[in-house]
């Protein structure tokens, strides 16, 4: 069992993501964020559970719905927020935005917006680890939609044949934009596809952060021992729409309500209170701390300058 400080840290990280995303939604509504947003609200247990099983020097790859992954791997809230606002102080100097957060210093190898594009890249980072002889692992986050791309097959197969240290983490939130999983694949558990590559495929409750953590820890251990990749399917649900102001009316009301009852944050909070690990006043204290650092992050991002226009011409070549 994890000790109290780690459990509190899980709670804090999940809360950081939840509050961060709600703040992003608010700023988007106030027209302060250019373009689009894809919120991670409701899926916090996946990023936090997986990243808790990783070491600081391990890598992750991420997606268009990637704020939560970056926060869970240890990227700074203020610089993520600045990037989302298109500011000079953002992680990508305003050139990437919400869909391309990266922080190479914490092993966050960046988020890509072409669905499924990061699977081969994650395998490549895994090959690099193997050739360099370090004990790192890579966690590759992607969605149910990505599992229908050719890169899913090519990327996982290559990692499998070479025993590469990669955790393929499928966040199955059951909808690729507005398209239901059941209308684009005949299997229920995406992890079953692992059989085709001769690797373990595990399906877990992606709204139970400790279940995700335990599965990821096992997969990471296996990867570090040179036994190859694992396909880890985390079944979860996005509490908001796909992007922008999408009201997600294509989802049945009963389904949404059932998933809201399984909110990962509330479940974990109830669990650690029940277990006597934390008291309400400590919960309140963590909430206040998170609100404070988020306020600071927003102030940092809002007060940061926009990049010089000619910044657009830089960083094309190394």
């Amino acid at each position: 069992m994890l000790d109290k400080s780690r459990l509190l840290n899980i709670y804090r990280k999940m809360l950081e993501i939840r509050y961060f995303e709600e703040k992003v939604f608010e700023l988007f509504g106030r027209n302060l964020i250019p373009g689009t947003i894809h919120l991670y609200t409701g899926q916090e247990a996946v990023a936090v559970g997986v990243c808790l099983a990783l070491h600081p020097q391990d890598y992750i790859t991420s997606t268009h719905r990637g704020h939560g992954h970056a926060i869970a791997k240890g990227a700074r809230l203020d610089r993520i927020m600045a990037e989302i606002l298109g500011k000079k102080t953002g992680y990508c100097k305003g050139k990437g935005g919400s869909m391309h957060i990266a922080d190479f210093d914490v092993g966050m190898l960046g988020a890509t917006a072409v669905v499924g594009s990061a699977l081969p890249i994650a395998s490549g980072a895994g090959l690099s680890i193997k050739l360099r002889g370090t004990s790192q692992v890579v966690a590759c986050f992607f969605g149910d939609g990505a599992s229908n791309q050719g890169t899913f097959h090519e990327g996982i197969n290559m990692a499998a044949i070479w025993n590469l240290p990669v955790l393929f983490v499928c966040e199955n939130n059951f909808y690729a934009m507005g398209t239901r999983q059941s209308s684009v694949m005949l299997i229920e558990n995406i992890a079953e596809r692992a059989v085709a590559y001769g690797i373990p495929g595990i399906t877990v409750d992606g709204n139970d952060v400790l279940a995700v953590y335990e599965a990821a820890l096992k997969a990471a251990k296996r990867a570090r021992e040179g036994k190859g990749p694992t396909l880890l399917e985390c079944r979860t649900y996005r509490q908001r729409g796909h992007s922008r102001f999408d009201a997600a009316t294509y989802r049945p009301k009963e389904e949404v309500e059932a998933w809201l009852k399984k909110d990962p944050l509330k479940r974990f909070q109830a669990k650690i209170i029940d277990m006597g690990i934390i008291k309400m006043d400590e919960v309140y204290q963590i909430e206040q701390d998170v609100i404070k650092i988020l306020e600071d992050a927003v102030i940092f991002a809002m007060e940061s300058p926009f990049p010089e226009p000619a910044e657009a011409l830089k960083d094309i070549y190394a």
Binding site: P120, G124, L127, S128, M158
Partner: peptide
């Protein structure tokens, strides 16, 4: 797997 050949090369390149 041409797509993964290039993708794997990219992943290796960005990690040293």
């Amino acid at each position: 797997s041409e797509s993964a050949i290039i993708g794997v090369a990219i992943g290796a390149a960005i990690t040293g």
